[in-house]
Design a protein around this nucleic acid. Structure first.
Lengths: 197, 197
DNA sequence: CATTATAGTGACCGATAGGTCACATGTCAA
DNA sequence: TTGACATGTGACCTATCGGTCACTATAATG
């Protein structure tokens, strides 16, 4: 969390690898963007690949902390209205946080060029998000708030459309207000369908 | 559709741009893979960028032909069983056709590096697929086969989870049998929920 | 004050990239 | 037969890239 040069390099690397790709990132311009000379980079990392690996290490650590333990779960909604506000709150964050946006983009653009990225992408886009909502839906079904369907199915049916719209928003951020309304519309649609009445 | 050298170059370019990225594709190896020398390439295209643009032109033409006119719509299912088999048939194709797979991968990996790819990605992943099923669902609702919900919502709720699973399959093709069963499970779940009984 | 660790610079190196060019080959029409 | 055109080759050019190295500046420490 410190603002050491080493950390600043990783932050800038995330930006550059997203904007130009790993292959497309050249260390001269990259270093200049940090107000450094290229050779100063090598004081902190042994090679371009070492920067790449350090970035992935950091992302991996983040994910295993985030998705690895159940105590990071949001508290279970006590009603469908709470589910709505919880979901919109999470989406609002994920759509606006610069680091999260860049991470998502990196996972998409490099997933077929690097095996670790491929794993992280599946973790992020499939298991991670769906596991969170699976666990939430399980509890809401037990509480009689949602109809008793397979929670895995519920999680997929809930998260996938939202993720699709988030990706759309990553591509066209100027349409954010419209997309946010679509997301809200979808969540309400989902609740209307799955709510136990 | 002819097998001219010019066409062969575009086919190989799709493969190479997916595997190595646009920046990561080097024309020497690329030409060698085609059994050509690098300079022979320049007989057919003026530059690396020209190959790239020709490839995008071809993709754009394909999409505007595919999604541009309503006569390319599959015929409307007369029952929910037909919807199931239609969907599984389309998915089976899209998951196994090498060209379609590569196209999807290219759209994902280059969407933030090229504005034309960005448009095509939105076309492919949002408008195109959803428009097809929106139109199908509209007719099925009119026919009293599905509950009268917003067809846009139906299309999103139907296509997004399938697309998510297809992306998963693109990353881990060895899990295809399992994923195909998940897809079938989801489509049945969807029908069970939205069928008018 | 001298020493030492840390962080930084700019010149340089070898490899590799995209692109050009003079030249060779083959085919077909006048 | 000859010329024109399409297709392909390998040597070559220039720019750029990742990486190295000798050297400098600063600040903390004994």
């Amino acid at each position: 969390m410190e603002n050491t040069t080493k950390e600043k390099i990783l932050d800038a690397a995330l930006v550059s690898f997203v904007e130009n790709g790993y292959k497309g990132t050249n260390l001269r311009d990259f270093a200049a963007g940090l107000g450094l000379s290229k050779s100063a980079l090598y004081r902190h990392y042994d090679s371009k690949e070492a920067i790449w690996n350090a970035l992935l290490d950091k992302m991996e650590a983040y994910y295993s902390e985030r998705f690895g333990s159940p105590e990071h779960l949001p508290k279970t909604p006590a009603s469908c209205e709470e589910l709505l506000s919880l979901a919109l709150h999470m989406i609002d964050f994920t759509i606006h946080d610069e680091k999260v946006i860049l991470t998502r983009k990196l996972l998409l653009t490099e997933q077929f060029h690097d095996d670790r990225v491929k794993s992280l992408a599946t973790e992020h886009f499939m298991y991670g998000t769906q596991a969170i909502f699976k666990s939430i839906f399980e509890k809401m079904i037990d509480a009689g708030l949602l109809i008793p369907e397979d929670p895995d199915m519920l999680a997929l049916a809930f998260t996938a459309p939202i993720t699709t719209l988030i990706h759309y928003c990553d591509r066209e951020p100027e349409k954010e207000p419209e997309i946010m309304m679509q997301i809200e519309g979808f969540v309400k649609h989902f609740i209307k369908l799955y709510e136990r009445k």
